[in-house]
Design a protein around this nucleic acid. Sequence first.
DNA 1: TTACGGCCTCCAGTAACGGGAGAGTCAAGC
DNA 2: GCTTGACTCTCCCGTTACTGGAGGCCGTAA
Lengths: 273, 273
Amino acid sequence: MFSIGEFSKASGLSVKTLRFYHERGLLVPAATDERSGYRYYDGRNLEKAGVIRALRKFEFSLEEIAAILEDCDDDQDAAEYLQRQRKILEGKSRHYRDLVQRIDQVMQLQREAREIVVFNRESQEIEERFVQPQIVAGLRIKGRYQDCGKVFSKLAKRVGRHISGKPLCLYYDGEYREEDADFEPCFPLRKSVAVNEFDVRTLPGAACVILLHRGPYDTLGESYARVFEYAKHKGYEIELPTREVYLKGPGMIFRGNPKKYLTEIQVPIRQET
Amino acid sequence: MFSIGEFSKASGLSVKTLRFYHERGLLVPAATDERSGYRYYDGRNLEKAGVIRALRKFEFSLEEIAAILEDCDDDQDAAEYLQRQRKILEGKSRHYRDLVQRIDQVMQLQREAREIVVFNRESQEIEERFVQPQIVAGLRIKGRYQDCGKVFSKLAKRVGRHISGKPLCLYYDGEYREEDADFEPCFPLRKSVAVNEFDVRTLPGAACVILLHRGPYDTLGESYARVFEYAKHKGYEIELPTREVYLKGPGMIFRGNPKKYLTEIQVPIRQET
DNA sequence: TTACGGCCTCCAGTAACGGGAGAGTCAAGC
DNA sequence: GCTTGACTCTCCCGTTACTGGAGGCCGTAA
């Protein structure tokens, strides 16, 4: 017979825990002194304590442990319980692994954003460039420009695995619209994947007039004016849809500082054939 | 301005949660009606709610989130916090993965035990067989036979990855001893691994008189008597150490029913050269 | 007798909420 | 102006598996 302190050392369970298990009926001491209330444990208690400890290691709840102790005398009897717990634990492992991946994604985006900022530190000028064709997944909608963000997060959830570059948006109107704007948020993909609900296709290459817009989205209008002015001056004919590539926008967690946003405006121009 | 119910739908946080965050000072409504106590939320609140939700997904505690909201305006600012959290989450993922592996081990042992029982259903007889050499990790001690279990769990913890068969024990005394018995619990290994504290070596093969003992360990004596009797009858000379292989003993969780234990007694005999 | 350590019970606190009681508030319909 | 029903308020309890602490009893040794 052990006193509770001795039994605590023998079993590896704290005195508090032993009292708690007693209260819960999980591990009832072999004897209790009626007068003093002292608990006394025996060898059978020790064995049971070992089983409880083993099951706690597998993170069974005390309730489940009580059930297992009720049902089982043998590892074999506990197989079902173990199988179930295995599934749960595997789920948790996967869950945490996914979270780690998500954090890695966030940090990857940060690195890219930093590089873009450094790389484009002084570019302010309009340029002409051929934009290469790319595979994209898009969802064309009619609505207000603010809805864009929601569509992006929806897209990211479904094709997140295959994204290969910065988000972009196609604008089919050729002018600014408060409501009923016709546009298509897109993600470039590494390879073509069939995702129902979204339009996955190759976005053709195009010669474009390009301007890197710095600052919040509500000043995009001024930059568009500069681009259109330039195109007109050069006598170019504009082809729809125009494109915006969001090189640095709101972060995945914080909105960030809109003054630091970088958006590339790409206006395709008709080529003489 | 949203009422708490509207804001709950907009933010995806429950009304209860919003009240709780208010109490904790994490997300204070833009205005509260002094008279009625009604909470009213605005767009900035909505943005903050989004950040909190994003951080909760990464399982930051509310306390940490408060600190992050204090410190950061931008994903970049949060990089350190994310890095730290990443480590924690990775640790948890590994933890659960390890538990799954441990459960798999338990169930693997169960399967083996079941097969052994089925396979040896009717073997009761003494036989002679050559036991193949094998790589083992052992720890030779002097003490009482009951200490065996502790040594096995110690061994299992250190070389668990490389175990390739049933635990066995070498007995150097050639007779039963209450105290100061000289014996060596061993695990067979797939390959030789250096583990300090333990003796890893190749246990030589040996021609043995073998008997499968059924039942609890305290009746092993009778089986030994049979084996020695047989050896004497045949005129064999016994070589130490003798071996016991624990084909089915206590489970990894439960002690199980000792009447079902299976132990192979192997007594090496000298070969004429 | 006193001291000291061990043991007892009871209460409170943990993290992040959810449930529910009982009461006050708001907007709409009559 | 009144009622109704939906909404909101505060306050308290419960969750899990314990840990910490207060205040007091018990047992043994000096």
